[in-house]
């Protein structure tokens, strides 16, 4: 009988995650002669990323897409990707992750009962909200909702902002009412999750390039025949290509939408941001196992 691969992700139906997931499904189902099926559960239907990591480790789900920060709880080495201004551009970051360093990090997932398939596109995360950020000075005292991880919290605090913990589902109203002044995300998320309706500014601070990846459960992967394993690897590679392309497209479209919606797109000089952020690296690296060594490997590839 056919094996069904339960495939989860947390983003909307118009996200590059969904495009990639559909590509994966298409390739697997076309190539397996009805032996394998893929059921896609978007929009956190299978839970958030932390839970999907746990579920994959126990074999409760087959595959999922996750960003790097939620993995840090389980594999703290991934913390190196949360260093601010680690990369300069989406292309540069993707280039490194698609090379030997990326492969090395995917390997690490096997120690936690998972199979790292491919890195998908990184997210370029910037600050958006009610007030403009054109300099580090503008960051002073801003209440910004950030991802929960030291690389994010400490960076925003070091830049003079007040990082604020908050459930993602409350951010929209919090921005609307002024509980927070801003949040940080990639442009297409700002459009897909409707933040565009309540903000006036998108400031291209480009502080984090957050990796994302397709991961499979070890338990499920090992139930596949060698040919089927080859097939899902091929499907994952094609899903990766789809993701890289779709991210660029949704990113570009989002900037147009933001402008059309009357949101000011600010382009601060990043040099002073980078200076402030780089001073923080030694402290952040202390908390990341093999941080120094992996940072060197990454920088060799730049």
């Amino acid at each position: 009988s056919a094996l069904d691969i339960t495939f989860g992700h947390t983003l909307a139906l118009d996200s590059h995650y969904q495009v990639a997931a559909e590509k994966f499904k298409e390739v697997v189902e076309a190539g397996s002669d009805g032996e394998l099926t893929v059921s896609i559960f978007p929009q956190s239907q299978l839970g958030g990323e932390v839970r999907m990591i746990q579920s994959a480790r126990t074999g409760s789900i087959g595959a999922f897409i996750t960003a790097a920060p939620p993995l840090e709880n389980t594999l703290p080495e991934f913390g190196v990707f949360s260093l601010p201004y680690l990369f300069d551009s989406v292309d540069q970051a993707n280039g490194v992750l698609q090379g030997p360093v990326g492969d090395m990090f995917l390997e690490k997932l096997s120690s936690a009962g998972m199979v790292g398939m491919n890195f998908f596109s990184v997210f370029e995360r910037s600050v958006f909200g009610t007030s403009p950020v054109n300099s580090v000075q503008d960051m002073q005292g801003l209440k910004i909702r950030v991802l929960q991880g030291p690389g994010f919290i400490e960076t925003y605090d070091a830049l003079g902002a007040q990082s604020t913990p908050m459930a993602y589902s409350e951010v929209f109203v919090a921005l609307q009412n002024g509980v927070v002044d801003g949040a940080e995300a990639s442009p297409e998320q700002v459009v897909q999750d409707r933040f565009v309706e309540v903000i006036d500014n998108f400031s291209m601070t480009k502080i984090h390039y957050m990796p994302s990846m397709l991961v499979m459960s070890d338990v499920i992967f090992n139930q596949l025949t060698p040919e089927q394993q080859e097939l899902v690897r091929e499907a994952s590679a094609q899903a990766r290509d789809a993701s890289l392309e779709a991210y660029k497209q949704t990113y570009a479209d989002a900037l147009v939408t933001l402008e059309e919606s009357g949101v000011a797109i600010n382009e601060p000089d990043l040099a002073e941001f980078q200076d402030a952020a780089l001073a923080l690296w030694p402290r952040l690296l202390e908390g990341i196992p093999d941080g120094e060594a992996n940072l060197e490997l990454i920088q060799e590839q730049l």
Binding site: Q54, L75, P165
Partner: peptide
Amino acid sequence: AMSAIEVAPVMRIPM
């Protein structure tokens, strides 16, 4: 037993 490697995102205490 399975979660021995997990730590809390902010406080970094074992989950």
